[in-house]
């Protein structure tokens, strides 16, 4: 069964890539390698082109769903218990300090995709008393260890982007369709986006990037001058959320 499943994933992964149009993928050639060949970078980063998001208004839903499905993120249908890894936020909230009242309403209400920024200097990592969350040296991904988290929620207080969620209750009954290859969480631990580190290890792009038909999400190595993210950052004016705090987010936005 295991071998079958593994093969199935390999084949399914490749075929969705083939079907998904042209996801903005840096190392497209490496993806075809078997799962022993992971995707690696010195520093992973993402560029989100909000213009493309605006042109394809139904598209955000698809990439949010793709992420939440493969990671067994529950849907409680109430804001109090809510858990989210990537979600839509109105521009005036996502860029709280860069909104102005005379902007066109559609601009202020423009839905912006937000997720963990995988900061260079993450405040959540600084405050965690058990190193249950930490920044991976080799590629800058801000990780979570659900085996070690004590549920103190200090990281929720410290994150300036509201990117972290806490399991106020047992999430399993609220997961529509359980993805067997990824663990669920237990009540009492914190979770967030991990840049799909488990998929990178298999040589796959993050689920949201893969699901984005509009090519609005670009994922790649910030330290590689030839990478597609570097090219986008070179050729476009981009902004980041709350740059004044010195956290150095790895998620950039083209407006």
């Amino acid at each position: 069964m295991g071998l079958d499943r593994r093969n199935f994933i390999k084949i399914a992964g490749l075929s969705t890539l083939g079907l998904a149009g042209k996801p903005a993928v840096d190392a497209i050639a490496r993806i075809r390698l078997p799962e022993e060949a992971p995707l690696t970078a010195k520093r992973w980063a993402m560029v989100i082109d909000l213009r493309k998001c605006r042109e394809n208004p139904d598209c955000n839903e698809a990439c949010i769903h793709a992420c939440h499905k493969v990671h067994n993120v529950p849907d409680f249908k109430n804001p109090k218990d809510e858990i989210k890894w990537i979600w839509e936020e109105r521009f005036e909230h996502a860029f709280h300090d860069q909104s102005q009242e005379y902007a066109d309403e559609s601009h202020r209400e423009l839905p912006a995709l937000v997720l963990c920024n995988h900061c260079d200097d993450p405040p959540c990592v600084r405050v965690c008393p058990t190193e249950a969350t930490w920044k991976r040296d080799e590629d800058g991904v801000v990780m979570m260890d659900w085996h070690r988290c004590i549920g103190c929620r200090y990281c929720l207080a410290a994150c300036p982007y509201g990117a972290r969620s806490f399991n106020w209750r047992d999430p399993r009954p609220f997961i529509e369709e359980i993805e067997p290859d990824f663990p669920t969480r237990m009540r009492g631990v914190v979770e967030k986006c991990t840049f799909c580190e488990e998929r990178l290890a298999r040589g796959e792009m993050p689920a949201c990037v893969e699901a984005c038909d509009a090519g609005a999400l670009t994922f790649g190595d910030l330290e590689d001058p030839e990478s597609r993210v570097r090219e986008l950052l070179r050729t476009h004016f981009t902004i980041r959320r709350k740059p004044g705090l010195g956290t150095q987010p790895s998620v950039y936005y083209i407006i």
Binding site: M1, W146, I178, P180, P183, T184, R185, M186
Partner: peptide, 14 residues
């Protein structure tokens, strides 16, 4: 062992 509070048992996986 609390493995199965998060990781999925074979029954669920089938």
């Amino acid at each position: 062992p609390y493995c199965w509070e998060c990781h999925l048992e074979p029954e669920v996986m089938k």
